[in-house]
Simulated assay, not measured.
Amino acid sequence: MSDSIYIRPIGLVPGPQSEHGNAIRLAGGMVYASRFAVILRRDGQIAERWLAAPDTMAQVLGQLPEECGAEAEAQWANLTLAHPPLELGARTVRFDQPQVMGILNVTSDSFSDGGTFLDDREAGRDHAAAMVEAGAAIIDVGGESTRPGAKPLWEGDEIERVVPAIEACAGMGAAVSVDTRKAAVMEAALAAGAHLINDVSGLAHDPRSAEVVAAAGCPVALMHAPGAAGEDLHAGADYGNVVFDVFDALRARRDAALAAGIAAGNILLDPGIGFGKSLADNLALINALPLFHALGHPLLLGVSRKRMIGALSHEAEVGERLGGSIALAVKGMDAGVQLVRVHDVAETVQARNVWRGLRDAALTDFADLPG
């Protein structure tokens, strides 16, 4: 018999005063949670579910099987953990509000803008500069398409694509991440000025990748994909409960990174929306995003222009998915996600700024009430 525990925030409020202080600040951000589901999963099935508030959480955790106690206490502590900023070159990226990561694809077959910035490097530099000017905290450079059906790219070709783009971005003072699952590309990217590794395989694809990241002492984003260890990231999806299965898989990749010598403060987690997941899977994960704070690391969400938006919008083409992209980015912000990875930086930054104004105002909404 195998038991697992999960603490999922299910009641989010504008601020702690709306609950007379009986709410927590979720992951040190601008989102507050007042109600939680404590879920016991036994042999893959939900066995019991309790509801708790901050002032009753200790009582609920005291009812759990002894073997789940330490994990439950760790998750509860993680939900209130304020994450330190990332120091990325000359830039500091703070997580007290959501940040925007801008996408720069230098690929020939990306689903969104394949070929545009690979064939015209000057256009790529201009696009990166515009994203930084618009408020992107990080520019994420990728040289290999990870869309379904894309063919794997030889690491030498990938290096040839990403290094000039990284050098250009670093040269303008941007914080730069590299979207790759290959250790040799990671090494070349870091040498060219990249500050963060964004690995869609969660360091599972290349046996040397964890060693490279640990030696560099750089931050790394670990994404979930069912086929992470193989060539096809989307292969092998078989979920009993997609939310808990992805949670468990990310925890396992996190633990492997820690065992490889990567500092806990350098780890970000990404549930991998669209990677080996159905529309129903993606919707379930997005609705459950607050749960993933229980793992204790900043969250990265990549939903921009993805297939699920078309599926919910009369098969809207890629270039017609801005509204859906903004809606999903704001949903991530409502869940306390620290980083949203997007194509449309200016529009998303504007949405974030309005979102933040609403959040700031909510903290004074109850200031004139007694008590």
Rank of each mutant, 00 (worst) to 15 (best):
A58S: 13
P84G: 05
Q75C: 03
A53H: 15
P98S: 11
Q59L: 01
F111M: 02
W76A: 13
E66A: 13
C68A: 15
Q75H: 07
A90E: 14
A52F: 10
A82L: 05
S112L: 04
L51I: 12
E66V: 08
D55F: 00
S110G: 15
V93P: 01
Q97S: 06
V93Q: 00
M101T: 02
E71C: 07
L86G: 04
D55A: 09
S108G: 14
Q63A: 11
R94C: 04
I103H: 02
N78G: 06
P85I: 03
N105K: 08
E71A: 15
G62H: 13
A72G: 04
A82D: 08
G69W: 07
A74Y: 00
P65K: 08
C68E: 10
A82P: 11
G62R: 11
A53Y: 11
T92K: 10
A53N: 11
V106S: 10
C68F: 01
P84N: 05
P54S: 13
Q59N: 00
L61G: 03
P85K: 06
G62E: 12
A52N: 09
L81A: 04
A72H: 11
G62Q: 14
M101P: 05
E87G: 10
P98C: 11
D96C: 06
V93R: 05
D96P: 02
M57K: 06
N78M: 05
W76L: 12
A52S: 15
E71Y: 01
E67I: 03
D109Q: 08
W76S: 06
A58D: 14
G102R: 10
G62T: 03
A53I: 10
L51V: 11
G102H: 11
V60R: 12
Q99K: 04
A74G: 10
F111A: 14
V100L: 00
